[in-house]
Design a protein around this nucleic acid. Sequence first.
RNA 1: GGGCCUGUAGCUCAGUUGGUUAGAGCAGAGCGCUCAUAACGCUUUGGUCGCAGGUUCGAGUCCUGCCGGGCCUACCA
Length: 573
Amino acid sequence: MQRHLITSAIPYINGVKHLGNLIGSQLPADLYARYQRGRGNEVLFLCATDEHGTPAELAAAKAGQNISDYCKEMHEVQAKLAEGFCLSFDHFGRSSSQENHKLTQHFAGQLEAAGLIDEVRETQIYSHVDERFLPDRYIEGTCPECGFEDARGDQCDNCTKQLDPTDLINPRSSISGTSELERRETKHLYLCQSNMKKKLEDWIDGKTDWPILTTSIAKKWLNDGDGLQDRGITRDLDWGIPVKKGDNAWPGMEEKVFYVWFDAPIEYIACAQEWVNSGKGKHWESWWRTDQGADDVTYTQFMGKDNVPFHTLSFPATILGSGEPWKLVDYIKSFNYLNYDGGQFSTSRGRGVFMDDALDILPADYWRWWLLSHAPESSDAEFTWDNFQGSVNKDLADVLGNFVSRVTKFCRSKFGEEIPSGGDYGAAEHSLFENLTAQIRAYEKYMESIEIRKAASELRSIWALGNEYLQSSAPWSVYKEDEKKAAAQIRLALNLIRIYAILSRPFIPNAAEKLMTAMQCDDWSWPKNLEEALNKLMAGSEFIVPEVLFQKISDEECENWQSQFSGTRSKGD
RNA sequence: GGGCCUGUAGCUCAGUUGGUUAGAGCAGAGCGCUCAUAACGCUUUGGUCGCAGGUUCGAGUCCUGCCGGGCCUACCA
């Protein structure tokens, strides 16, 4: 039995995520976790909320809440939505957990002891009105190049010139608008990633099977300009993990917290500890410590492309630099972006479909199927209502749903609601076994290699095979001359429904449950030997004709939703 | 500016190390079936593979240039 550790990039705490965020990491990670469980492998699937950093503080302030309460509340909101989308995390943790505090401080102590931490004095922009240091992008002003008045401190959105906040003319805080800004000296810890360049490069060069998107981003960062740069891992903020060396104080760093990108990936490990501490599992070390049983673990991470540098370089630098036997990632699956109807999803402008909206209008399986079968693997993809309606109606309602419907209803009217007996399988059936076996093997191959679109398309053609079989064997005609033969055909078709439940479960878990329940069965074992698996439902056992599995989406609904989600989302986030 | 990704039928996408008439699903057309959510099956019409050169016996696939779309560029996360 294989052991799979699977993590999804942890979603940021400041609001409900949109469908682009969902398909960028959590949903594909869930697909893979469900598949591996379905194959009978041992899986630990972890995710959490990413709760630190300036945007979280500002979001809490805007909501008029203290940051701790805000995060707690938003964590609950996100956990509920994750449940709504059937994301099967073994634990959904929080980067603000005590476990992560301890562990992050531990890593910092180890890195310091290894000589991989520098203290750097630098000057940053401080705002008295906002009572905080301002990250570059929170400073606005006039672009010295093009005169654009709302240029940000890191880059001008008008002429794309990269800027330093001190370049701006008439700089102001984008939070309060104040121009009472001063340059103030502060001191920060830097992780000496540059010392580890060779090690990281060798490691990445060995990963020849990773997606190009993943390795090309990593190599760019390794070799761009002067090569891999050291990175600040502390910030002057109130909310975060206090800077310490393990359990000990860090002189001169008393008022500071770790940078969110330092502690967020460490939460992958801390989350396993939370999983144990909340009573859901035991021995987290067997997943994370190669000296305590984790050397047979296959670790796969899922993320959007914006997260790749941190997972290919910063976090591995933390792990390798610690000198301790932590498990390194084996495979990084990264995704491009999903756009919405001719533009980008926009949280600030409320453009696009958000996770809560989505569940308000349709069940999770509809979204899961469309998103996964259109996952932005090779390039950015686009959600349009037209395309969504087409895929859902055709694939789910017609090809799969209607297959189930025609088989169960035919059986009920001719043989009653039980698996009919009699008759034998002939050439047509054996040819079906052969074709279906080949397609299942192909489906497995794509799922193993996490080629999601291809897996989805293979699954769809597996569903279609059922319709093809029915059409060519025509039990409704056979029944008139040879009742037994028709019984055998329908017995096979009913057994196919159970197979479809098993194979489809990673994509559409709720529908899969309905199918299995309808067949009055609870045997989810993977069909390794198809002919055997197609004899699981024995003649005489009862089944139930299920409700319509997937309701079709009407043109009218589509038009309404299109205008409803074109912008200015009413719900706050 | 630099780097990366991407441009294949009306739409969404496959096309392995270059190798015979470029594939799939949807949409369109025709035929069939009537068990079924007017669903299903079969057949079929669509492509000078962004443009222009080059390498090669042979290029969607490799090289160069150009055009279009997108992303990243280290203090948002």
